[in-house]
């Protein structure tokens, strides 16, 4: 079966999001009263596996090995329906 998974990478709480801060300041300048902006990266990955669980496990490993740096980032994986 082919599965489509979404791997979402975001900065851990307490890690300064320099890009998010810049976007927030710029939105404020444009008159939008936003109070916070966080940037996230999302990878939509298609792969074949025996089950959705196996696909998730594979991408969990991939996230740890490449997509996220555990020092500053958290990740979550969900199936794309």
């Amino acid at each position: 079966m082919q599965y489509s998974l979404e791997v979402r990478i975001e900065l851990k709480k307490g890690v300064i999001d320099a890009e998010g801060e810049t976007v927030k300041k710029t939105l404020n300048l444009l008159g939008y009263e936003v109070e916070g902006v966080n940037t996230v990266s999302v990878y939509v990955i298609r792969l074949s596996a025996e089950s959705e669980e196996e696909a998730m496990e594979k991408m969990d490993e991939a996230a740890r090995r490449l997509l996220a740096n555990p020092v500053i980032q958290n990740y979550s994986i969900s199936a794309v329906k």
Partner: peptide, 13 residues
Amino acid sequence: DVPTASLTNNLSS
């Protein structure tokens, strides 16, 4: 095996 530090975006963005 996994990174224990990071060189991430400059504070100035």
